[in-house]
């Protein structure tokens, strides 16, 4: 996983042309940890601070109606005004695209970034919305009924990606 993250950090730097207006926004929960790691990698490389934030998209989900017991809402905090910044959304798995759609709606309530890009660790296909990632750690083809589980050291005790067929 660390090699993939290293490569993703480099690609982000290229995409954003440096760190001057870069902001990394991790989607709760594992996206936040991944964003933190990538930010640290970039900081080590560039020697400049990279602001990061966390976004919980629960309240923007399009399936709140049908979900049983209400999901727990995580923390949302953003590093200041996003207007004029290049916001890079970071998440662990990209699947149907609905989480990213919710994230875009939510970010819109916080301001108007100059540009929003998407960076994911695993793209497993199966899109239900016209959404694509700008930076992908690894592509995996999966079918419905199969699962991709990402574990991160900070939350799960180890770094691991499992594809369960």
């Amino acid at each position: 996983m660390s090699r993939a993250l290293q490569r993703m950090a480099v690609e982000i730097l290229e995409l954003a042309h440096g760190t001057s207006d870069l902001v990394l926004i991790g989607i709760q929960r594992r996206g936040v940890e991944l964003a933190e790691r990538i930010a640290k990698l970039i900081e080590k490389e560039e020697g400049a601070d990279v602001p990061r934030g966390a976004l919980d998209i629960t309240l923007y989900r399009d399936d709140l109606e049908t979900v049983g017991p209400k999901p727990v809402i995580g923390e949302t905090h953003l590093p200041g005004d996003l207007t004029g910044k290049h916001a890079v959304i970071v998440d662990d798995v990209l699947y149907t695209g609905r989480t990213v759609r919710a994230a875009l709606d939510e970010l819109a309530d916080f301001g108007r970034p100059k540009r929003i890009s998407l960076c994911v660790l695993v793209d497993r296909g199966g899109r239900e919305l016209p959404i694509q990632a700008d930076i992908v750690g690894k592509s995996v083809k999966t079918g419905p009924g199969e699962r991709v589980d990402v574990q991160v050291e900070e939350l799960d005790g180890r770094d691991q990606v499992d594809v369960i067929r």
């Binding site: 709140l64 049908t66 979900v67 209400k70 699962r147």
Partner: peptide, 21 residues
């Protein structure tokens, strides 16, 4: 209001699976 509104229990599992996308 958030906790009381809507929600159907039988789709809870489906939602949990979908939440890891």
């Amino acid at each position: 209001l958030y906790l009381l509104a809507g929600g159907r229990a039988e789709l809870a599992d489906a939602a949990k699976r979908g939440a890891s996308e």
